[in-house]
Amino acid sequence: MFEARLVQGSLLKKVLESIKDLVTDANFDCSNNGFALQAMDSSHVSLVALLLRSDGFEHYRCDRNMTMGMNLSNMSKMLKCAGNEDIITMKADDTGDVVTFMFESPDQDKISDFELKLMDIDSEHLGIPDTEYAATVKMPSSEFMRICRDLSSIGDTVTISVSKDGVKFSTTGDIGQANITCRQNTSVDKEEQTIIELQEPVTLTFALRYLNSFTKATPLAPTVQLQMSKELPVVVQYLIADMGYVRYYLAPKIED
C-alpha cells in the first residue's frame, strides 16, 4: 500500500495549484524515493516535473511502485476542502482504483476523508538529461511573477537575454514595447538577491502565456531559478524547502 502524511498540508494544496492550469490529467509515480510527476501540457510545448521526496513527509510508506492517474482539476477540488493548517494524508491500496485524502485539523477535532477515483492515463515519460546550462539566473520569485504579468499586458512573447550585466526581459506588442533589466544584486537579503552565473551570453524567446502559468508556483518558494542554453528549453525551477522541487521546461519560439 501507499501512505504519505504531510503535516504541512498546505504545501500539497500549493503544489497542485502550481500545475493544474497547465496539465489536465497526470500520472503520479509513487516509489520509495517519493511522490513524483512528469507531465506535458496538451500542446506539448511545456513539461512539468514534480518531486516530493519521501523523507520530507512525516510518515511515508510505499510497498511497491505505483502509478496513480488523476484528473488534476478534480484533485484540486478535493484538496481545496482541506484547511490551510490541516495535516493531509494520502492513502491507496496496491490494487485500488481510488486514492483517499484524509484531512486532520491541527487540534484533531475534525477529520475528513475524500476519495478520488483514479484513472488510466496514457502518458509518455521523457528522459531529461543533466545539462550544463550557458546561463543560470536566481531571482526573487515574486519579481519574476511581476515581470511576466506586466509584460503580458504588452505582448505575447518575451525575449530573455542574459549577459554579465544582468537579465533583460523584452516584449513587443501593438501598443509599443517594453524592456525590464534586472542587474546582479548580492548586497541585499538572500531571498531578494539576483544572481547570474554565466558561461556565455544567451538570448531566447518564449510564449508569456506559459511563463505566467509557471508563476502559479510562486507561493512554494521565495526564489526562482532560470536556466538557459542556446536553442534549448528554459528550465524554471522552484525549490520546495526540505522536500523537492517543481520544475517547468518550456520550448523556445522558433526564430524567424
Binding site: 509518455e124 528522459g127 528549453p233 521546461y249 520550448a251 523556445p252
Partner: peptide
Amino acid sequence: SPDQHDITSFFSQR
C-alpha cells in the same frame, strides 16, 4: 502553434 518547438523533440522517449 507552428512557430513553437514541440517539447518532446528535446528529450528522449523512455
